[in-house]
């Protein structure tokens, strides 16, 4: 350790460093750490200035300013992207398709109508077709017999 006096310029700079950042090395700006440490090592006066700053740091350490807020964790986690998507995205997809209260009524009506249509289609496939043939046949019979066929019968209607 050198016993030479600290230059006034170094003293001022060092005092300003401790005034701003205190005595803890990890609080000092990185670019000033080596310079300050070498001054402290070389000059007892620099060490004294640092020790004075250390007193305030030790007092500030008594108050960590980290209150226990564990009771907030669950409510914060309830609002994470996963939770909000579970709560909001799925219903919104459904609501896009059916923006009304319940979907079972229109769904059951659609199912009933569909079932009825299929049953009708499979159980009486020739109903309409037969009816059409019968009407054509009767018209043809009337035409062929000639007596009762009206004179006003328009030509070309029966192909």
């Amino acid at each position: 350790m050198s016993h030479s006096n600290l230059s006034s310029q170094d003293r001022d700079k060092l005092t300003f460093l401790f005034d701003c950042y205190g005595a803890y090395i990890h609080h000092w700006p990185e670019e000033k750490r080596d310079w300050a440490l070498s001054l402290i090592e070389q000059h007892p006066e620099a060490k004294t200035i640092r020790d004075q700053a250390l007193e305030l740091d030790q007092l500030l350490d008594q108050s960590s300013a980290e209150p226990d807020s564990a009771h907030l964790v669950s409510s914060i986690l309830a609002q994470t992207p996963a939770k909000t998507s579970q709560n909001s995205v799925k219903p919104s997809l459904l609501s896009q398709l059916w923006p009304y209260e319940s979907i079972w009524r229109p769904l059951s009506a659609l199912t009933t109508a569909g079932t009825f249509g299929i049953l009708l289609g499979t159980s009486s496939p020739n109903l309409l077709y037969q009816q059409e043939i019968t009407e054509i046949e009767s018209a043809y019979m009337e035409f062929s017999l000639g007596d009762s066929f009206p004179n006003s019968f328009p030509e070309g209607e029966i192909d």
Binding site: E66, P67, S69, A70, V73, L77, T80, P81, A82, S85
Partner: peptide
């Protein structure tokens, strides 16, 4: 976190909540 990993979210909260409230 963006993918909804609850453990990642919990870790973040546990690490930063108290200091944030303190500030």
């Amino acid at each position: 976190v963006a993918q909804g990993d609850e453990n990642a979210c919990r870790l973040l909260v546990q690490r930063h909540l108290n200091p944030l409230v303190g500030l």
